[in-house]
Design a protein around this nucleic acid. Structure first.
Lengths: 107, 107
DNA sequence: TCCATAATTCAATTATTGTTGAAATGTATT
DNA sequence: AATACATTTCAACAATAATTGAATTATGGA
């Protein structure tokens, strides 16, 4: 992941609506969610939501697919993982930022 | 760390100069760096650099101290760690985003 | 005290982002 | 084909962030 992509991804997540959208999609899992359901769950107007979904897509954090007349948005876990990896490698030092994932608690 | 703090931290890092500044300070370690050295190393004008250092401070990612007529900026590793923890817990799912830190490679 | 250095603050300007409602697109149903 | 629904695109506007040079604050040394 290029530095420019990192900046775009960070910028995309640095907004309350977008962070909430992304979290909701992470929770939703592989099934994803439609803009309709998202807007209902988060109380965001369709136009506003569409704008932010596009931002997240452009940043590469979401994947879009069509199902009938609905669009389905999904979190791109691989992209998020790449972002985490970048931050861990470049913006952390020593143990200070060492985040211990659940699977490693016994290390 | 409150959601609002997360957004500010992400927003602070979502800028090329600020990301480079933060990385340089992470690399510099506990000794930190002065704006003078940073500006030299990164080729950023004093006023511009000062603006971005302030942004990073406001976001809680940097610590500031004075030493004679120099100011010394340091990365706040704990804050960065808290940011990483938040993202790991809230924006990742399953193994897809599981970042394996160096110390855990044998797990 | 006076000067030089390090860095910040201020104010004006420009550029980028975010919001909103109206209009348009695409798809399913009858 | 006609209608309804889900969603996006467009265009105008409002708000926020970034850049720049000049002026200011703070410290140390002659």
């Amino acid at each position: 992941m290029e530095e420019q992509d990192i900046i775009r991804a960070l910028g995309a997540l640095a907004h309350d609506i977008r962070l909430r959208v992304f979290r909701a999609l992470v929770v939703a899992g592989p099934e994803g969610m439609t803009p309709g359901r998202l807007g209902e769950a988060l109380t965001v107007a369709p136009t506003t939501l569409s704008f932010h979904l596009k931002e997240l897509c452009n940043a590469g954090l979401l994947l879009q697919a069509r199902s009938g007349r609905n669009l389905i948005y999904r979190a791109d876990y691989a992209r998020m993982g790449a972002l985490m990896a970048y931050l861990t490698e470049n913006c952390c030092a020593g143990d200070a930022c060492a985040v211990t994932p659940p699977s490693c608690t016994n290390c």
